[in-house]
Design a protein around this nucleic acid. Structure first.
Length: 581
RNA sequence: GCGGCUGUGGUCCAGCGGUUAUGACAUGGGCUUCCCAAGCCCGUAACCCGGGUUCGAAUCCCGGCAGCCGCACCA
């Protein structure tokens, strides 16, 4: 068994990840989070909230997972996310139908599926592999389609990303943030993509969890006020240029922006925050890098994009987070499709004075002469550039009719005007996290094996902040006199809000191993010294060392250990193992 | 979606036309004042699903589903 298999097997056996619908034969691309997987995922999400909602002050919202058609017309997912396919009736091979007629039709995208099929027939195009006859063209869209309400009146789609929920709430979010930039909204939730062939467990799912932030910024100012805080952090950058040579470059964020490796502070800052978050949940820095998208792989909406990639045994480098500069693509698209203005009025620091020529048509004269058309003529006059108002005759075009007017009917005036600001469409920086992939990475990067007395010990070295079980309380033996004080400790720890497990089954060594395997950082053992001296032992998962502390202090000590305030060997008196005595 | 390989208790595996379906580990109960998967006793627990061939199918054939590997796909 290689490591990947071991991790998967452990995850299945111990209740982290279960293939879904097993009772009914299963379906690829769906997983259940078991009793340990669900809290692990929840804790990862909570750390994400800590970083992006609490520390950055972003607003968390929750939008429906089913969206109406208009959203995905605007976002490009209806057209860009779906491909016209055709298959060979002989060898069953599947092709992109539009690709087959590229050399005949200049813009195959503009054709309907029927038209593409007709083109294939008219030009007698056969299967490129075997020459067989091709089937009619059908649409394969990666979005799950459903119906809203009875009948077929309204089409709904399961959202392929959470991002659109933030974009379409832009006007309300803007108001929430009192009409000023920058601001950001986030969502953690399920997204759905009907993948053609999902594989590799939780790496490619049909239903998955995303955590996305949409940070709306003023496009003219891509600096970040807190850039100084992250600028000394060093990380592995794998830029477009570096990919030519195939070696990542280690440098600070400050250097990366100075050298133009990362386009601007805004993008760099969120790449850095992403990096810090991934470290916090337990992704190994040695097996992580940030790779810049190449120009040709950039998504249809992105101007620049940096992916956090992690190295997984057998799978290689896998993308787990994308941090993209989506520019104003989405807001512009939604503004155009919905016909709602999605710009922000940005005030200047100081109102600007501007000279402006105001054209004043003489309505008293124009009215009687042009009657109903007078207004249109006046508008046309106002629209003319100042130089056209000179000369003997002024010519305007109204409803295709050329009309001549003598200059005396129009007066021009130069006025000084105060301009207080301007309408802009914000740009969007989007860090987009694949929670399932991150969780799998945490499992993979936490997995260790060491040898204890010639036996292999499997350990998940979770950070205490993500461990599904933080403490196990273990009576040395399953005996009444040890169980009573142990239960008291269990209750107290639970009242403190710790995630505690209780286990009396099997020898103490067996119970330590069981907990090592699910990543429990600390075990409290109640033994006969507890009865004599009122102390218990706390065992450290990684070093397997034990310290003794008084019963009254055990809850405080554990909390200090879990939060990292106290080092293990300083938490109590080191216990010398029996065989060394 | 195509092709190849695979599918037996929770896990790993034996059985390859007739067995009360083998075993190990894990797990539950009991014994053992027992700090790193010890020992002994007892127990729970499986042939992926559906058809077919056959007197008889876990075993052979077909289809489905799932997993792995290649190809394609991955906005």
């Amino acid at each position: 068994m290689d490591k990947n298999e071991k991790v998967n097997e452990l995850a299945r056996r111990r209740g982290f990840l279960w293939p879904a619908f097993e009772l009914y034969g299963g379906a690829a691309g769906f997983f259940d989070y078991g009793p340990l997987g669900a809290p692990l995922k929840r804790r990862i999400e909570d750390i994400w909230r800590q970083f992006f909602v609490i520390q950055e002050g972003f607003a968390e919202i929750e939008a429906p997972t089913i969206g109406v058609e208009g959203i995905y017309q605007a976002s490009g997912h209806l057209s860009g996310f779906s491909d016209p396919l055709t298959s060979c009736k002989e060898c069953k091979e599947i092709y992109r139908a539009d690709h087959l007629i590229k050399h005949i039709v200049e813009v195959p995208d503009a054709l309907t599926n029927e038209e593409i099929y007709r083109t294939i027939q008219e030009n007698e195009i056969g299967c490129p592999e075997c020459g067989g006859e091709l089937s009619t063209v059908y649409e394969f869209n990666l979005m799950f389609k459903t119906m809203i309400g009875p009948g077929n009146k309204m089409t709904g789609y399961l959202r392929p990303e959470t991002a659109q929920g933030m974009f379409i709430n832009f006007p309300r979010l803007l108001r929430h943030f009192r009409d000023s930039l920058p601001f950001a909204a986030v969502q953690i939730g399920k997204s759905y993509r009907n993948e053609i062939s999902p594989r590799q467990g939780v790496i490619r799912l049909r239903e998955f969890t995303q955590a996305e932030a949409e940070i709306f910024i003023d496009p003219r100012d891509k600096t970040h006020p807190r850039f100084a805080e992250i600028k000394e952090i060093k990380m592995k950058f794998y830029s477009q240029a570096a990919q030519e040579t195939g070696t990542e470059e280690e440098m600070t964020f400050g250097e990366a922006v100075e050298r133009g490796v990362v386009a601007h502070q805004m993008l760099a800052y969120y790449v850095a925050r992403t990096y810090q978050f991934l470290l916090a949940v337990g992704v190994s820095p040695d097996k992580m890098r940030f790779r810049q998208h190449k120009a040709d792989e950039m998504a249809h909406y992105a101007a620049d994009c940096w992916d956090a990639e992690v190295f997984l045994d057998r799978l290689g480098w896998i993308e787990i987070v994308g941090v993209a500069d989506r520019t104003d693509f989405d807001l512009k698209a939604h503004a155009a499709t919905s016909k709602v203005n999605l710009s922000v009025f940005v005030h200047y620091d100081r109102p600007k004075k501007r000279q402006k020529i105001v054209v004043k048509p003489d309505f008293k004269a124009l009215g009687p002469r042009f009657k109903g058309k007078a207004k249109a003529v006046a508008e046309a006059l106002k629209a003319l550039p100042p130089e056209k108002l000179q000369g003997d005759k002024i010519t305007v075009l109204v409803d295709g009719e050329s009309i001549e007017i003598e200059p005396s009917l129009v007066s021009c005036e130069t006025v000084e005007e105060e301009v207080r600001g301007e309408e802009i469409i914000p740009h969007v920086i989007e860090p987009s996290f694949g929670i399932d992939r991150i969780l799998y990475t945490v499992l993979d990067h936490s997995y260790y094996e060491d040898a204890v007395d010639g036996e292999t010990r499997a350990v998940l070295r979770f950070k205490p902040a993500v461990a599904p079980i933080e403490v196990a309380v273990l009576p040395l033996m399953d005996r009444e006199e040890l169980i009573v004080p142990a239960k008291k400790i269990l209750e107290e720890l639970r009242i403190r809000g710790l995630r505690v497990d209780w286990d009396t089954s099997g020898s103490i060594g067996r119970r330590y191993r069981r907990n090592d395997e699910v990543g429990t950082p600390y075990e409290v053992t109640v033994d006969y010294e507890t009865l004599e001296l009122g102390t218990v032992t706390i065992r450290d998962r990684d070093s397997m060392q034990q310290v003794r502390v008084a019963i009254e202090e055990v809850a405080d000590t554990l909390q200090s250990l879990l939060s990292g305030k106290v080092k293990f060997l300083e938490a109590g008196t080191l216990v010398v193992p029996a065989k060394e005595k």
